[in-house]
Amino acid sequence: MKKLINDPADVVSESLLGLEAAHPDHVRVDHPNRIVLRREPPRPGKVGLVSGGGSGHEPMHGGFVGLGMLDAACAGEVFTSPVPDQMMAATKAVDAGAGVLHIVKNYTGDVMNFEMAAELAAAETGTEVVSIVTNDDVAVQDSLYTAGRRGVGVTVLLEKIVGAAAEEGRSLTEVADLARRVNDNGRSMGMALTSCTVPAAGKPTFELAETEMELGVGIHGEPGRQRLPLASAKEVAAMLVDPVLTDLPFGVGDSVIAFVNGMGGTPLIELYLMYNEIHQLLDRAGVSVARSLVGNYITSLEMAGCSITLLKLDDELVRLWDAPVNTPGLRWGV
């Protein structure tokens, strides 16, 4: 295992120290609870947005704390859910009197622990909490870590869009309804060229031969749809786009955000090459790309590969996507 670390047991805590030192204008960190918070205190009357999950997917979620996105993010150990006490502390920290929205990826540990935290917050402080579970991955119905589809790339788009709505002062009901709409209108699928290595494990999560790739892999290295011979970018793009288009389904005349995401180990030159192939496929399908996002936003440590996410748009979603955002991991309009 070759990694720029000290002790595997300290990777998360030391990474959070670095995040805080690098972005003091955006965030502060509650280190005992491993919670990334906005630098400024909560604005009275604003709905608080809390997300989180296992570490190893950076910049998600701590990198998306700031103006126009999250108010707090809980960091678990690598590929391990945060605990309810962390989520409870984050909920209390961002409660400004308008309630709190939990944005939860559909992984069993995350869902269970966020549910417990919401119940604790309601009982202890009377905070109204609504949970939205993202489940946009079309690759498999169930996986090693889920009942139902996994929550992946739509989570990033949802945090941005819902974050803009919360900044406008919308109510908890309105923000939650918007989050459901985004989740319902987005679909994703990923693939891997290599495995990743969890620092505490010290060895690859799975083995892939030099001539193989995994189609539909999860962000924790969970098995996908099938293991296939290595293919060209053009062929891989079709393997990702076709299942996504047919699942919602997306149709002629639809307008979308096209999100090509790197898994952590794929350079931008390859991600932009993949975007070109995907854009051509969408054009041939009559699907218009209104907005795009290309880069490493929801990763799997150093895994090589990519995922695509398509989100069907309307005028309101475009406006909220374009609204200012200022976080360590995403910034425009400010």
Rank of each mutant, 00 (worst) to 15 (best):
G265R: 04
L273A: 15
G264K: 01
C306Q: 12
L311R: 04
L268S: 11
Y275G: 00
G262Y: 00
M263N: 06
S307L: 05
Q280F: 06
L268V: 11
S307N: 08
C306Y: 14
Y272N: 10
G264S: 06
A290C: 02
V252I: 11
P267H: 12
I278S: 01
T309S: 14
S307C: 04
L313G: 04
D254Q: 04
M263T: 12
V256L: 04
M303Q: 05
Y275N: 09
A290T: 15
V256T: 01
L313E: 11
V260Q: 01
Y275L: 03
G265V: 07
E270A: 13
I269V: 14
I257N: 03
L313T: 11
C306I: 10
N296I: 04
I308K: 03
P267R: 11
L311E: 10
G295T: 10
L310M: 11
V289C: 07
N276Y: 07
L268M: 15
I269Y: 12
M263R: 07
D315S: 13
L310C: 09
E302F: 07
L268E: 12
M303Y: 07
C306R: 00
D314E: 06
N296L: 02
V287N: 08
S255H: 14
C306K: 02
N276P: 05
N261I: 08
L268T: 11
S300Y: 03
I257P: 05
P267L: 10
F259R: 00
A304L: 04
V260I: 14
I298C: 11
Q280H: 13
G305S: 07
K312S: 13
V294M: 00
K312C: 09
R291D: 13
L271F: 01
F259S: 00
T266L: 01
G286I: 05
L301Q: 04
L301A: 07
L282R: 08
T266D: 03
K312Q: 15
L271A: 02
V289Q: 08
D254R: 09
I298N: 09
P267C: 02
A304N: 11
Y297A: 10
R284W: 03
Y297I: 08
G295N: 09
D283K: 13
L293F: 01
G264N: 01
L281Q: 13
Y272S: 12
M274I: 06
Y272L: 13
V260K: 02
Q280K: 14
G286H: 06
Y275S: 02
A290G: 13
I269F: 13
A258L: 14
G305F: 06
